[in-house]
Design a protein around this nucleic acid. Sequence first.
RNA 1: GGGCGCGUCGCAUAGCUGGAUAUUGCACCGGCCUCCUAAGCCGGGUUCCGUGGGUUCAAAUCCUGCCGCGCCCGCCA
Length: 587
Amino acid sequence: MAVLPPCYVILGVDQMQALIDAVIIPMEAAMNSVGIQGDFWKKMLSRSKEASQGDLALPCFPFAKQLGCSPDAAAQQIANALELDVGEAVAVGPYVNIRASMDWLVTQLSKTPESKGSILIEHTSANPNGPFHVGRARNAVLGDTFVRMYRAAGYDVTSEYYVDDMGKQVGILCWALENLDEDQVHNLLAEGEIPIEESPHSAKEDHARVLWYQAANLLKAKDSAVDAGVTELVQKSEEADEDILARFEAAYQPVLDGMLVTLGRMGIAFDSFTKESKFIVDGSVEILMDQLQSSELHGVAENGAHYLELESKGVKGKSTQFYYRRGDGSSLYATRDLAYHQHKWTRSVRLLNILGEDHKLQSKQVCIALDELDIKSPEVVFYAFTKLADGKMSTRRGNVVFMDDLLDEAQSRALETVREIRADLPEEKLMKISEAVGVSATRFNIARISPEKGITFRWADALSLEADSAPFIMYSHARACSIQRKAGEVDLSVGLDVTGLSGTAADLIRRMAYMNDELQSAIDSAAPHNFCAWLSALAVDYNRFYRDNYVIEEGVVNVQNLILSELARDHLRRGCEAVGIIPIEEM
RNA sequence: GGGCGCGUCGCAUAGCUGGAUAUUGCACCGGCCUCCUAAGCCGGGUUCCGUGGGUUCAAAUCCUGCCGCGCCCGCCA
């Protein structure tokens, strides 16, 4: 088995910034020598938009006036005056392009990791009232992708699920389970034209119990006694009634467990769960509500309800009041959210929330209220909705595509393909590969889209196994693994010789060298899709390298190429892990 | 009525702290396995970047009017 020398076990930081740092001093000298005043150009020196032209680019249009020549000539002058250790500068039209040398790039590959502090990422936190559907899944996939990316970048991450264990959704579920029998449920659903679809998951408690939830919602619309019953339960839960909270838990916990099984199948796990009721029970909500009364924004409605007037804080619309205490003195969901944030800040120095765009206003209100309480606001990433071609998804109305079914379908489609390509493999292995491919493809098809873009769910897109998808990346990784296996035990300690590299090998090194920049910038700009794109590009680069750089030729191992292949394998693996693709070693 | 977001080739998608021929995939056409996995690689695109103005040496990117789509504006969660 080939082993990489320790210096290649990577994680550097901000190679692009390192390059800029290395270039800026000689650049100043060059600017002085051609006679350009000021340092306004420093912010114009940035990553080249034309990757083929180099790593950094400086547009020279603004210098033309100052130097009294054309932009092209200015670029030429600057490039000529520039002397670099880390690469070379070439004028191309009105641009000075700087290309880092292979020597420099390779040193960047061996940078050691840097610990970056803690962050608590809260995501998913779906009401435990029914199975995961593809709409809810966007939160989970996005959230877990952030968790993974932050971890890969050196952060100490806590992934957190906020359990809505009180309130109306759970109240309805609890009421239904305690008051309706199976026949009633089936009759109600038949009347309401909500189909009960038999599936391999019917016995899972999230699938089983959601029928009660749906039925109760139907009944509630025509029988006010139901509403009264639910309201009573909800009110008691808000008073932290132990008996009610225990009955709620008995109702939702099996559902939540079922949901977590689905998430587990997708490789999504949580470090901690916090229940909403905690903040009623421990009295922290009550304390915060008292504190809010001294806010300048504080107001009281006729019936004694308390609110903050947010108009002066830039909140606009029909209602600018943020109610945090009802007329009867009880708290609201948002109020408990305040206590929750206070609690989260005791656990981490950074907080990140992943929320659907429907929570934008709510989140803004909570942030203002937190500010009034002298509590810092969390960072928030919003994502747009996933809808079905024929309209909105709704657990209540049964208009959903369940994640369990989607994953099954993805797996079975992947199986068809694997079976075709790898007829040599035993059934057990085929199943394992197709499961990994199905899960990875499903996740990647969500993660690769910019969060603020709305998604219309289509089976064909969700199950796509084409290029620019997870299987493509997995395939590249599996290929590198196969080469490693074939190469056998080889001593790689000679290190990489950068002289005489082929073009595709150089491209591969360049791509890998900027991995940490890509990761950090995806994190900083809350754009996991950009890191997905980088990972696809890495796979393409590796495939091209593979095409014209033989690692094993006629039984002889080319050590230099093996080092590169191994580096690529390592980068591909870490990239996959950072976006939730399962880096299987054979497919 | 107001707020926020989105509108890029037939479809999907990147770029949007202004700069070089607007990225990538699908679909469509052609080429590449007597050597490491062809789920691969190579080649093939006249896109008024929703639309009308404006700012600029330079606009998909900034400002503004309009059109279309989504989300929100509960003493619900």
